[in-house]
Design a protein around this nucleic acid. Sequence first.
RNA 1: GCGGGCGUGGCGGAAUCGGUAGACGCAGCGGACUCAAAAUCCGCCAUUCGCAAGGAUAUGUCGGUUCGAGUCCGACCGCCCGCACCA
Length: 869
Amino acid sequence: MSENTETTGYAFAEAEPRWQRAWAEAHLFDVPDVPAPGTPTYYVLEMFPYPSGQLHMGHVRNYTLGDVVARYKRARGFSVLHPMGWDAFGLPAENAARERGVHPAEWTFANIATMRATLQRLGFSLNWDREFATCEPRYYGLQQALFLDMLAAGLAERREAYVNWDPVDHTVLANEQVIDGRGWRSGAPVEKKKLSQWFLRITDAAESLLSGIDTLTRWPERVRTMQARWIGRSEGAKVQFALADGSDARIEVFTTRPDTLFGMSFLAIAPEHPIAARVAASDAKAAAFIAECAALGTSEAAIEQAEKRGYDTGLRVAHPFIEGATYPVWIANFVLMEYGTGAIFGCPCGDQRDLDFARKYGLDVPVVVLPPGEDASSFGVGDTAYDGDGTLIRSGFLDGMDFATGRRAAIERLESIGAGEGVVNWRLRDWGVSRQRYWGCPIPIIHCAACGPVPVPHEQLPVELPADVRFDLPGNPLDHHPSWKHVACPACGAAAVRETDTFDTFVDSSWYFARFASPHAPTPTDPDAARAWLPVDQYVGGIEHAILHLLYARFFTRAMHRTGHVSVDEPFAGLFTQGMIHHETYRDASGWVAPDEIVRTAGGATRRDSGAPVEIGRVEKMSKSKRNTIAPAPIIERFGADTARLFVLSDSPPERDLEWTEAGVTGAARFGQRLWRLVGRIAEEAKAGDTQAAEVPESYGEAADTLMRATHRTIAALTEALETFTFNVGVARLYEFANALAEAERAEPTPDLVWARREAARTLCLLIAPMMPHLAEEMLSRLEPGGALAASRAWPEADPGWLAARSVKLAVQVMGKLRGTIEVAPDASEADVLALAEAEPNVARLIEGRRVVKRIYVPNRIVNLVVAG
RNA sequence: GCGGGCGUGGCGGAAUCGGUAGACGCAGCGGACUCAAAAUCCGCCAUUCGCAAGGAUAUGUCGGUUCGAGUCCGACCGCCCGCACCA
């Protein structure tokens, strides 16, 4: 394989930047914020990148997929919004500051410059004039305005909540930053700490977020399922249990099975439950048990999960239905404070966890559900609970009822005696957005001793981050800053302090798609622009954002709708989730070896430097730790942007994982060169015989006819492939079309064929333009010097007249087995076709002397003869 | 455990509404060009029996529906992903 462009013909290194300049000069990808009325619009968006410093192959795939859609839709006559920006706040910038002493802003903008250059080198049809980074005050200042509007609308509130606290770094950690109960940076044991935090009331929108999933018909089913499960609606009842200690204290329990209340054996509360704390105050053993549970932390919970443990508080509660009956109250490690009410009633016969617990501590196991077909006198529960439907027994007024009836009756009774009510419980929790970090959007609040938390007045926005901060102290640099936080209270004028927390970076990415519609508007959105462009018609990104980002964005859109910033509830009408990029792994005695350090040989691989053998490992997701990443920039350098683009589109369906191989890349490069030569020859020929090929032929000879049919079949196939996101099939159809063009070179170049070849070549340029846009321009300009840019031309239309086949090859089966094929006219009569089929020599041989009892004829498909005997 | 997805040649994958399984590419093999190589162009390429004509077997396994099943139904096996004590 040659790495020298000069020997391979098409000089992409020179051509690609040239066409990129031509597109920019023609302003082909610019669109107005508010398009003229009646303009068909299409909004294509890929998830914007975090500016880590280097574009990776996942980005190349992501943005190529989006660019294919954008260019195709543009060719179909849509005004296409296809913007790009930077998800620029976040911890890595602060880490760089701590480790290398470079300011987060400097680090971030340098990274953006590098990555923007690579993106531009790839030739994406982006509206670069709409670019912004979320760390710019012109963006985050408007985010602060949005927050204040939401606060005023009751969508945000301040409340106390537990957080993972790193006592060394003085910072809050996200769950994924807690490893084995310790902070990922400091290694210190993480504490649960109660802090005042800002919350966005996403739970208010739970019902709407859940029902809205039904309208997202162009989302992958599994993302919809994951979201629905995350929101987690469950119907049941809250039940009050009065403590049997003479006080009027009650413990509230959530259950989805109020019908099994008569199967109660105990009540269990979470270790963090207030009653547990009350017990612990006077019971050292209880306190020790609670401390033990807390020490396990969230991550080790998984390991200890199998083991159910509890502590009997000695308290007892009364049963709401059974006069005089009381049950023990346990503290149990498997009861979660965060879900429901943090307390459960234990019904061992119908719940495996309760049964495990009851068996371990020798508690009663009353059987109250009789599975269908079982006998009440003989049915018992061993070590497996029965949670299916059945008939209620030993359940007082519920006896004989099924699950649904029993539940209704139980709730009715609970409500009538004031001991509970039917409720809907959600797994979704409110979204805590406070982070004790510097490199984020400041929360626009001022804390005043007299007035409490006061919103920063709109005219004082943006609250800008101070540039002069120190990273050599633990904790939040904003907090250490000598002057920044000290301000006058906007309400009373007294000395007050700014909120030093910043927003979770998921907030930044929850509305950027709306800002892209009018990135220079003085308000967060321009209502006309938002109405014109939203929702995003096609969103493209990684499956890893299936839940959080997409759910937050859906919530934010609802909140922005309510506060008058947009007029839709759902941000993304269509969603496509791409697969990851994989690569072979290599290792030797020293550990993982990178692909550019090895030489692939016939039987294996060796080190480039020493020639020592290297073990070839599994094909795995590209990752730094396995050192199996391929950087896009050198690939573009060696093979060109179009080759990189074509490769990520070919072979694998976009939603599936793609294996990056050297052979695959060189294959894609070869195809580009082959097209260039093929079209080049046609351009030369057309030039030589100009007058001959200028007119539309009156009739076509066989070769021209075949090529014309191939051309229009390919138009239809590509259109279908691009509409259905089966780009790999589209690439295959283009290969076939190139083969057809090559085939046509072998026939006598009569004027009709010359014309057909030129038509085919021109069509090929337009069809390949969304995938290999530079090559398309280069080829088209050779074919039609001085003609319009491919990127400005309309998508070709398939002529139905050319789509019909001249003749059809039919399969002929006998008894369902293929025995031959026949060639028939598409409009041949059934009788003719059957006669021809039975005359086919091999078929005739097989049916000879036997009676054909049934003849099946599916036009254009198949003939099947069923014979007797 | 629960939820979702996927099993097709040496490899990535294709196959409309149930209608010729393996498109297209990669790898491999043969040929042309060349002093030679690279590049390029042409051809072959599921397995198996057969000189051939043709036949048999094949879409994870077993069974079913059907004139006909990769596709539909049932059971099972394997792999991947997500969630995971959610009451």
